[in-house]
Nucleic acid binder design. Structure first.
Length: 117
DNA sequence: GGATTGACGTGTC
DNA sequence: AGACACGCCAATC
C-alpha cells in the first residue's frame, strides 16, 4: 500500500488515476478504488468523483467501473444509457440486464498496481 | 455553515 | 432471495 496524499483535492485525481489504469476488457468496483485511496467503505466518494469525471480530459474509461455486484450503476451518466453497456460488450465483456456477466471473472483489483500510484 | 445528497457496500430482517 | 437500514464522507445547496 503506497502512501496517498490526504488532500481532498487529490482524492479525485487519485480516483481518475486508478480508473485510467483499468486494463481494456476488465472492470473494477468503486469499493476497490476507495480502498486503495484509504477510504474503504467510502465508495460513494469514488462514485461521486466519477460523476465529475465526465468533465475530465482525456475522458476516463468510466464504463469499466461498476458496483460490487457488477451492476452498471452509472450507465445513466453517459451520453446514452446504453453507451456503457455497448462499450463493455465491445471490449469482450458480456453485459446482461444492466450488469456484468461473470463479473468476478473480469474483476480487476487496483491494489495490484498500488505501487505505481 | 448546517442539511441534504449520492455512479456504494455490507449486514439484517 | 428480495427488501430495508445504516455507515461512509466530500460536494453542493
Amino acid at each position: 500500500m503506497r502512501e496517498v496524499d490526504k488532500s481532498t483535492t487529490n482524492f479525485y485525481e487519485q480516483v481518475y488515476a486508478i480508473v485510467r489504469l483499468i486494463p481494456r476488457g476488465r472492470v473494477t468496483s468503486y469499493g476497490a478504488i476507495a480502498k486503495v485511496l484509504g477510504r474503504a467503505g467510502s465508495a460513494r466518494m469514488v462514485g461521486y468523483a466519477m460523476k465529475s469525471a465526465s468533465l475530465v480530459q482525456p475522458a476516463l474509461p468510466a464504463h469499466r467501473v461498476v458496483n460490487s455486484m457488477g451492476l452498471l450503476s452509472g450507465r445513466h451518466a453517459f451520453e446514452t444509457d446504453t453507451y456503457m453497456q455497448e462499450m463493455l460488450e465491445n471490449e469482450g465483456i458480456a453485459v446482461e440486464n444492466e450488469k456484468v456477466v461473470n463479473f468476478k471473472d473480469y474483476f480487476w483489483n487496483p491494489n495490484e498496481l498500488a505501487d505505481e500510484l
